[in-house]
Each structure stands twice: as structure tokens, then as C-alpha cells.
Design a protein around this nucleic acid. Structure first.
Length: 552
DNA sequence: AACTACTTCAACCGCACGTAC
DNA sequence: CGTACGTGCGGTTGAAGTAGT
């Protein structure tokens, strides 16, 4: 970062040169609007002189109207910069120095409750700024990650705080607006898997109404989720080779989350044992090779953060896709996940930590997009999804209740089979609308969506998941590497999953294929597979877009 | 002492929202 | 009603500081 920059750019960092030619448009420097043509705004660290000028200004004029600072003083700083400087460093009663233990505790609790709402947290910490809190938290994340500690201490029951109705709603709205543009930029492919995942999540859980709210919230990247955390999610994944060799299915498909779900019966039986709102995840039974000896903690998710708890990386193997297809404990466990993590022995794991570090330093760029993908539905779509989820869940419910464990397990297999094997493959042409409701039976799950040229709209196309595959043993098959989605996934494996960019060409090609569309401008998106063990769409498998259904 | 790796934190950026015109 | 502006927020960046070798 060069703080010596004195650019005078066009609006919002577009860095064009029109600012001097348009009388209406003030000069803008990297998002800061400056008054007067060609004025040069200083960037970088503030000098004491500048501080003095700003303090004087505030004394005279009070806070606010920051853009006027430049007019009334000799300060060559944009209003934004002035506000930031004042708020973070110059305003009175600022507390400097390290956070006290009480403050730290409060931050942790607040974060568990509200996520990355730094400004809100700052309101509860007099003298502290949002920036300070944010920095503290980010540092904490790294520290605890390195130490192999969970993000939240055991005494913090994240689930106790989360998903308050108002919070959820407010965040859905906010993030929805914020992410919409990102979504439009993503093209259609990712939205496809968005619904894919949502569909699965909704269809596999018994409490449709409750679930759909939560799932949708999370799928939209809302709630107390944190892309920041997502950035710290470690690539604790087996290599593609490992995946092949292990016979495991594609490891990072978000639908794997379903493994975390407790059976309806179990859930009901145990619900009363704990705080009804407590839904933290306890370890599931993982005892099958090739990951038989791995600890379930490997795949613990922090409900708040969409995050695999990197803190527990020291466990044996990458696990995400290797969880036994068996029901996890969905109720709160007395031996909390955190406790488990803490007591988890730490075998050699330098490779994993290295990966984590690499990941931190060079998070795959695709993360953001994928995260955004889930954050980008408009509210109309949200309602639609909720409705859809409920319907599907109802349809599934009888199956699940008749043999919960079996059903769950089977459904999981179905997911694998349908998504990795051609039979369930469906080519979705965006712009088509198929009323999935009509197609919905106990043996089919239809994923609703439609993407229009202008972005996403509330409509459905079909992605059919056939439950006739129940109980079928999944076998790895060869991937049709000519398929764009395979290329995408492959490329993603190379880049996003492991934080290592090996070759971007395949990704580009795949994207071109996927997003290029046909002559009519419609884009095709493959949802199912056409051959072999095809990873699901790239969006469905990103760490960042895994629907945190586990937070239920 | 020199170098490297790592951490901290100030500041920037883009986006979203509210309001005035 | 649309646009411009002011402001706030959350995420990201990189210079400076620190620790380790």
C-alpha cells in the first residue's frame, strides 16, 4: 500500500480522469470526494499538524460535515479520512492500549451474539472503536487458529445468542442489498448450486419452517456469518488424488453438512435436555475409513462463522468429505465441541498448519464470489426459497421419520449419487421456468431457480435428485473432464481449496463455457452430472458458501 | 548486526443507506 | 422520482514494529 498516493480519481475508485472535466463531479480520490477541481488529497498516515487542524476544526464546527473540513481548513484530506481519523484517534475519551480481560470477554460474547458488527460492539465498549475491535478480533482469530483453540471458549454458547429473529431479519435485508450486485457479476453458475444446497438442506431436515429460515439466512450469507472467518477457513481437504483414492465423494460439497444433522427423532428427544435454542453440534460418529480415526472435531463448524473450526486442525486427516454417513449428534453435548477440540490430541500437523497459513496469506479469490453468491438473492427469492424448502421438507419428512437414520444416510448417498453420477443430471437452461412443485414427489427434489439476463429472478428450473439411488453404494467414477463444471471444480480444487494457484486457465475456460451461454444469451448450467464422479458446481463446494446448516 | 517471519494496527476501499435537492 | 452528497460500516491492505534465527 502506498500512502503517498495523491491521485485524483473519478467516483468510487474508478480512476478515470473525467473529474476535471465535469463541473458537477467533484474530484474524487479513491472514494473520497474532494471539493474543487484537481485538488490533491493526501493519503497515508496523519501528521500531528494535520491532527491539530482537524481537532481545531471539530472544536469550532463540531463533528459531521466532514467534507467541509477540506473547504474550511488547509487540510488536504477527504471527509472520509477526516471522520475516520477523528473517530479512531482524535475524539476525546478514546481508550488506548490493550483490551482488558473484561473487554475481551465482552467482545467474544458480543461477537457470538452479533457477528462482525464492529460498530455495534463498539457502542458497548466505551472508548473503543470499531476498528480496534475488528483488529483485535482478527488477531484473535489468527492466534487461536495457530494455537489450535476454538474461536469461542467453551463457556460461550454461541448458539444461545444466535439467530434472534430480529437479528436474522435485519441481516438478511442488509446483506441482500449489499451482495446483490456481486451476485449479478458472478454469472449464473453459482446461483445454481446455491439452490442446490439449499434444497438439500431444506429437504433433509425435519423442521422445515425453522430450518428454512436459518438455512436461507445462511445461504444468503447473512446472519452472523463472517466472510472474514471464511478467509481463515483452512483447506483441510484431501487432495483430489486423495479423494479419488479414498473413494470418498467430493469432499467439500456443502451438502455434506447434512451429515451433521440429527435425525428428527433424536432431535426431538434431546431438545428438552438443553436450552431449546442450543443447537450446537456435538461430534458425530466418524469411524469409517479412510478417515476412520479422525476426530469429528475436524469438521466442527462454528455456527456463527460458516467456519470449519480450523482450531482443530491438528486432528488426523482432512475430514470434510470423509465423514461417515452416519448421524451426528445434533443436540448440545455436555462434552461440547470446544471441549472436544481442546482435548483432541495434536498429532503432527505441520502440513495442515502450513496450509492454513498459506490460506490466510493467499485466500483464494473465488471465496468472495462464492460467498457472495449465497448472499445475493432478493427477498422475493428468499420467500420463494422458504416456501420451497417447506414443501420439500414436508415431502421428505415421512421418509425421514419412518427410518430416520437410514433415511438420512440414504439421502446422503443419494446426494452423492445424483450429483456425481449422470443419472440425476439435469441441464438447466437459465431462463426456463419449470414449476418444480409439480414435479415434487418423495423421490424427487426439484431445485428452484431461474436466472435472467439481468441477474437472478424468482423462478424455478429443475434439478432433480432422485431418491431411487437410496442405499446405493457410491463408487468413484471418472470425471468427464470436458465438462465445464468439472473443469471449474477441478480448477477450484487447485486454487480455492488449497490456496494455491496452479493454473487459472482451466478456470477461465470453464467459466467461459459455463457462462458463455448459447446463442440466445441463455446460459446453461449443469446441475447433475453427466458422467462419472463429477463434483458439483463450483459454488456448492466452496468453503465459503457452505450453508451453515450445522448452526441449527 | 542482519535478515526473515510474523504481528499489529492505521488507513484505505467499496458499498449501502439516508437525506437533501 | 432521480441524482448527488454525506456518512457509516465492514473488509482489506501494507507499513511499522517485534520476535526469532
Amino acid at each position: 500500500m502506498s500512502y503517498t498516493t495523491t491521485t485524483v480519481d473519478s467516483d468510487d475508485g474508478m480512476h478515470s480522469s473525467i473529474h476535471n472535466e465535469s463541473p458537477a463531479a467533484d474530484s474524487i480520490s479513491n472514494g473520497c470526494r474532494s471539493r474543487g477541481k484537481g485538488s490533491v488529497l493526501k493519503k497515508g498516515p496523519w501528521t500531528s499538524t494535520e491532527d491539530g487542524i482537524l481537532i481545531d476544526y471539530v472544536k469550532k464546527h463540531g463533528e459531521g460535515n466532514w467534507n467541509a473540513v477540506q473547504k474550511h481548513t488547509s487540510l488536504a484530506r477527504c471527509g472520509k479520512s477526516c471522520r475516520l481519523r477523528w473517530a479512531n484517534h482524535l475524539r476525546p475519551n478514546l481508550k488506548k492500549g490493550a483490551f482488558s480481560q473484561e473487554e475481551e470477554q465482552l467482545i467474544v460474547e458480543m461477537h457470538a451474539k452479533m457477528g462482525n458488527k464492529w460498530a455495534q460492539m463498539a457502542e458497548h465498549l466505551p472508548g473503543r472503536t470499531d476498528n480496534e475491535i475488528k483488529n483485535y478480533w482478527n488477531t484473535r482469530i489468527k492466534r487461536r487458529q495457530r494455537a489450535g483453540l476454538p474461536l469461542y471458549p467453551p463457556e460461550i454458547h454461541v448458539e444461545d445468542f444466535q439467530w434472534s429473529e430480529e437479528y436474522t431479519k435485519s441481516n438478511i435485508i442488509r446483506v441482500d442489498r449489499r451482495r446483490h450486485q456481486d451476485f449479478l457479476q458472478l454469472g449464473n453458475s453459482k446461483a445454481n448450486v446455491l439452490f442446490d444446497d439449499l434444497n438439500f438442506a431444506a429437504s433433509l431436515l425435519p423442521a422445515a419452517s425453522d430450518l428454512s429460515d436459518l438455512v436461507t439466512c445462511n445461504m444468503l450469507g447473512t446472519g452472523p456469518s463472517s466472510s472474514r472467518y471464511e478467509s481463515y477457513m483452512p483447506p483441510i481437504l484431501p487432495s483430489p488424488k486423495q479423494i479419488w483414492e479414498s473413494g470418498s465423494r467430493f469432499p467439500m460439497c456443502s451438502s455434506n453438512i447434512k451429515h451433521e444433522f440429527q435425525s428428527p427423532e433424536h432431535f426431538q428427544n434431546t431438545a428438552s435436555q438443553k436450552n431449546p435454542r442450543s443447537c450446537s453440534i456435538s461430534p458425530c460418529d466418524v469411524d469409517h475409513p479412510p478417515y476412520g480415526n479422525q476426530h469429528s472435531s475436524d469438521m466442527m463448524m462454528i455456527p456463527d462463522s460458516h467456519t470449519v473450526t480450523y482450531g482443530m486442525l491438528p486432528t488426523s486427516k482432512p475430514s470434510f468429505g470423509a465423514v461417515k454417513l452416519e448421524l451426528p449428534s445434533f443436540q448440545y453435548s455436555e462434552t461440547s465441541a470446544f471441549d472436544q477440540w481442546k482435548t483432541t490430541p495434536s498429532p503432527p500437523h505441520s502440513d495442515l498448519l502450513d496450509s492454513v497459513d498459506a490460506y490466510i496469506q493467499s485466500p483464494p479469490s473465488s471465496q468472495v464470489e462464492e460467498s457472495d453468491c449465497f448472499s445475493s438473492c432478493d427477498t422475493g427469492l428468499l420467500d420463494m426459497l422458504l416456501h420451497e424448502a417447506k414443501i420439500k421438507t414436508s415431502a421428505k419428512h415421512s421418509l425421514l421419520m419412518s427410518s430416520p437414520q437410514k433415511s438420512f444416510s440414504s439421502t446422503t448417498c443419494t446426494t452423492n449419487v445424483t450429483q456425481n453420477v449422470p443419472r440425476g443430471g439435469t441441464l438447466i437452461k437459465s431462463g426456463d421456468y419449470e414449476d418444480s412443485q409439480k414435479n415434487l414427489t418423495c423421490s424427487e427434489i426439484t431445485i428452484p431457480m431461474q436466472l435472467s439476463a439481468g441477474g437472478i429472478s424468482s423462478a424455478f428450473a429443475g434439478n432433480v435428485v432422485k431418491t431411487e439411488e437410496f442405499d446405493q453404494v457410491w463408487e468413484p467414477k471418472r470425471v468427464d473432464t470436458t465438462r465445464p463444471d468439472v473443469l471449474l471444480a477441478s480448477s477450484w480444487l487447485d486454487q480455492g481449496c488449497y490456496g494455491i494457484v496452479r493454473d487459472t486457465s482451466s478456470m477461465s475456460d470453464a467459466l467461459a463455457l459455463l457462462l458463455g451461454g448459447d446463442d440466445t444469451g441463455n446460459s446453461y448450467m449443469t446441475v447433475g452430472s453427466s458422467s462419472g464422479q463429477t463434483p458439483r458446481g463450483v459454488g456448492s463446494c466452496g468453503w465459503t458458501n457452505m450453508p451453515p446448516v450445522w448452526s441449527l
